[in-house]
Computed example of a mutant assay.
Amino acid sequence: RWLERPVILDNWFALQASAPFGDAIARAEALLSHPRFDPQAPNSLRAVLGGFARCAQSFHKPDGSGYRWLADQLVALDVQNPIAASRFLKLFMGWRNYGPQRKDQMQTTLYWLLDRLHSANSQEITRQCLGL
């Protein structure tokens, strides 16, 4: 019924990506592969990637897999839309405010990103996050 309404679909994508149950990474991957997902639309990207990050249980997994998954997405996004990628990098801005384990994992992820992001925007935000 709503397949031709991108705003409604984006809300559905965001709700699905932010749901705190099951394997959130697999669910987000499925959403990125959904036939109605538009990888060129910033609102669609914000819905899935932002939705994933809004779910603390998914993004802040103790093993760091949420950080690594989002970082992989940002490396790919940086090639096609550096401004959008740099905005998502701000999700890592408060890494110093977390407990030692998450803090270390977020910092490690930021250094990993620094070596792989090539746009000036993303490099600048990553350096700001790290305090460089």
Rank of each mutant, 00 (worst) to 15 (best):
Q57S: 13
L89W: 04
G131R: 08
L77N: 09
L31A: 11
V7H: 10
K90Y: 00
W112V: 02
G50Q: 06
D23W: 08
V79H: 02
A71R: 04
G64D: 02
Y67D: 08
E4Q: 11
P82N: 09
L70R: 05
Q73R: 14
H34P: 07
N121V: 05
R46T: 09
P20A: 15
D10G: 12
L113A: 06
R96L: 10
I125G: 00
P20N: 10
L132E: 14
S44M: 05
L15G: 15
K103W: 10
Q101C: 01
S122I: 07
A24L: 13
D23F: 06
F37N: 14
L110Q: 07
P6H: 05
R102E: 14
A41L: 11
L49M: 12
F37M: 10
A19T: 12
I8T: 13
L31N: 07
S122M: 06
A120F: 08
E124L: 12
Y98L: 02
A26L: 12
S58E: 08
Q105M: 15
A53P: 01
G66W: 07
W69T: 09
F92H: 03
H34Y: 00
Q80I: 13
A28G: 01
S86P: 03
N97C: 06
A85P: 02
A47S: 07
A41K: 12
N11P: 00
H34V: 06
